[in-house]
Simulated assay, not measured.
Amino acid sequence: MPIKTPSELFIHDLSDTYSAEKQMTRSLPRLARAATDPQLAQAFEDHLEETRAQVERIEEIAEALGLKLKRIKCEGMAGLVEETLSMVDQVQEGPVLDAALIGSAQKAEHYEIASYTSLILMAMKLGYAPAVPLLQATLAEEQATDKRLGAMAEASAIEQAEATS
Rank of each mutant, 00 (worst) to 15 (best):
P6A: 06
V81A: 08
E162G: 05
A43W: 03
E112K: 00
K4F: 12
D46W: 09
S19F: 03
A105Y: 02
K68S: 15
A129K: 15
P6S: 07
E109Y: 07
Q42F: 13
L134E: 04
T84D: 07
M77E: 11
V88L: 08
A157K: 01
R30A: 14
L134Y: 05
A78V: 09
I158G: 01
T25V: 03
A161P: 00
A32L: 01
Q90H: 12
T25P: 00
K70C: 07
I72R: 09
M87L: 15
G76T: 03
A129C: 00
A78H: 08
P133F: 03
K73T: 13
A161M: 03
M24N: 05
V132E: 04
L126H: 01
V91S: 04
K68T: 15
K125R: 11
E93F: 10
L101D: 06
M24Q: 03
E142M: 07
Q136N: 05
E141T: 10
E8F: 03
S7V: 14
E141H: 10
V91I: 15
E60T: 13
P2M: 13
E142D: 06
T5E: 08
L69T: 00
I120H: 05
Y18P: 08
P29G: 09
P29M: 09
S86I: 11
E63W: 04
R148L: 13
P133L: 00
E75M: 13
R57I: 00
A34Y: 00
Q143V: 10
P95D: 09
Q136P: 01
A153H: 10
L134P: 09
A20L: 10
S86T: 14
S15T: 08
L149F: 08
A35G: 03
Q92E: 15
E56Y: 06
S118D: 15
R71A: 15
G66I: 06
I61F: 04
E109K: 07
A35T: 05
G94R: 01
T117L: 06
S118H: 14
A140N: 12
K73E: 14
I11S: 02
A108S: 04
P38Y: 08
V96D: 03
G76H: 02
I102W: 02
E162K: 13
T25N: 00
R52K: 14
K73W: 11
H12K: 11
M24A: 15
A140Q: 12
L97F: 02
M122D: 14
D37L: 13
A123D: 04
E112Q: 03
E45S: 14
Q92V: 13
Q42T: 14
Y116V: 07
F10L: 10
E162Y: 12
A99V: 05
Q54N: 12
A123K: 01
T36Q: 10
S27Q: 06
L119C: 11
E56F: 04
G150E: 03
T164W: 10
S15P: 07
M124L: 12
K4E: 15
Y128P: 04
A53H: 11
K68G: 15
